[in-house]
Write a protein that binds this DNA or RNA. Structure first.
Lengths: 184, 184
DNA sequence: CCTCACATGTAACAGGTTACATGATTAG
DNA sequence: CTAATCATGTAACCTGTTACATGTGAGG
C-alpha cells in the first residue's frame, strides 16, 4: 500500500502529470521509493476512481495529451491516516546476501568480481547523496519539513555507508579465501 | 528470481518437506530472505516440474502426507549459475522512510510513537543476532562456509545497528519538533 | 513528409500476501 | 469421538517488471 501514498505525497508538493511524476521519482524520490511509469499510470487511474485525486480540466482528454492531477481533500486525509497507521518493520530481503549464502554451499565462483562491481556502484551513490546533502541541507536550516526531509536523506547515506563498509570487508574475505585455495 | 534459489540453498544443506522449509525460513533464513508456506509450496511444485528437485519416494503421496524434497544435479548447477550472474543492486524501498517523507507534507501526527515502537523491535532483533553471533561464530573458526555465513550475519547486525541509530536520532528530532510546536 | 521527443496506455507475467480449505495423525 | 496439530494445498488479489503499442506536436 505504499505506492499510492508516495504519489499522493508527490502530488501534494506539486500537481503533476504521469510523466512528470515518473521523472520526479527517478530524480529525487528514488532514494526511498522507486516506480516505473506503468505503475504510476495504473495507480493514478485507481486514485482518480477512488476520488482521492482528480485531473485538472484542460484541452481535450485524448491519448497523447498531458493530464495533470491534483490531490483532493479526501486524498490528503487518506495520506494523513496512513502516516498514523501502525505497521510492522519490513524484513531485510536482499538477493546479494542470498547469493553469498548460496556461495557458502556451492562455492564462491566469480562472486568477488560482482562484489567489487557493487562496491563501486554504492560508492558512487554515496557520493551523490553527500553532494545533495551539502547542496540542499546547509547546517543552519530550521524549517520543519526541511528537517524531516534531511532525516530521510541521512537514512539513504547511512544505508550506502553500510554497503560500502560491508562490501569492502566481504571482498577482503572473499579474496583471502581465493588465495588460500590457490596456495594452501 | 530469488525465492527458488533460497529454497535450493536450503534443500542442499538438508532435504526437507514444505513445512520444514517454512520453519527453517522463519528461524534462520529470515534475516536475509523471508517466505510464507504458500510461496514455498508453490515454488516447490515449479522446481519439481522444472526438474531441479524431486520428491523422495515414500508412503503414498496424498494430501496430508509429508513430502520430502532433494536437489537434483540440475538444481545445483542452476544455483551455481545464479550465484555467478551479474545483477543490479536493489534500490532501497522502505515504507517507514516514505511515511516520514509524507509527514514532512501533512504533519507528523503520532509518528514519534511509531518510531519508538520500531526502535524497540530493532533493538530486540539486534540483540538476537548478537546472541547468534556469540554462540555460532566463535573467533577461531576458519572453515570457508562458516566465514561466508558469518559475513551474512554481520550484514544483518549492521542493518539493525543502522536502524537503531537512525531511529534514535530521528526520534529526538521528532520530539524536539513536537515540543517546539507546544511552546514556541 | 519524416523523425524524434513527449505522453499515455495495454498486456502478460512473476512475485508476494491473505484468507481459507482439506486430509492425516495423535492426545485426551 | 473429538479436538488439536501437522501438513499440504487453492483462490483471489495486489504489487512490480518487461515488452510493446499508440497518439501528439515540433523541428528539419
Amino acid at each position: 500500500m505504499s505506492l499510492p501514498h508516495a504519489i499522493l505525497t508527490a502530488l501534494l508538493e506539486k500537481p503533476s502529470s504521469g510523466l512528470e511524476l515518473t521523472r520526479r521519482f527517478d530524480r529525487s524520490i528514488r532514494y526511498f521509493w522507486s516506480a516505473t511509469h506503468q505503475q504510476i499510470y495504473r495507480e493514478l487511474r485507481k486514485l482518480e476512481e477512488g476520488g482521492l485525486i482528480h485531473a485538472l480540466p484542460q484541452a481535450q482528454p485524448s491519448r497523447g495529451q498531458k493530464r495533470e492531477y491534483e490531490v483532493l481533500p479526501a486524498g490528503r486525509e487518506a495520506l494523513t491516516a496512513w502516516v498514523a497507521e501502525r505497521q510492522e518493520p519490513r524484513a531485510m530481503r536482499d538477493p546479494l546476501l542470498l547469493r553469498l549464502r548460496a556461495a557458502a554451499v556451492v562455492g564462491t565462483g566469480d562472486l568477488a568480481d560482482e562484489f567489487a562491481r557493487h562496491l563501486g556502484l554504492h560508492e558512487r551513490q554515496l557520493a551523490e547523496y553527500q553532494e545533495i546533502e551539502a547542496r540542499d541541507f546547509p547546517p543552519a536550516r530550521t524549517a520543519e519539513a526541511d528537517r524531516l526531509q534531511h532525516l530521510v536523506l541521512r537514512a539513504g547515506i547511512a544505508q550506502e555507508t553500510f554497503w560500502v563498509q560491508w562490501l569492502t570487508e566481504s571482498l577482503e574475505e572473499l579474496r583471502a579465501l581465493e588465495s588460500r585455495r590457490e596456495a594452501p
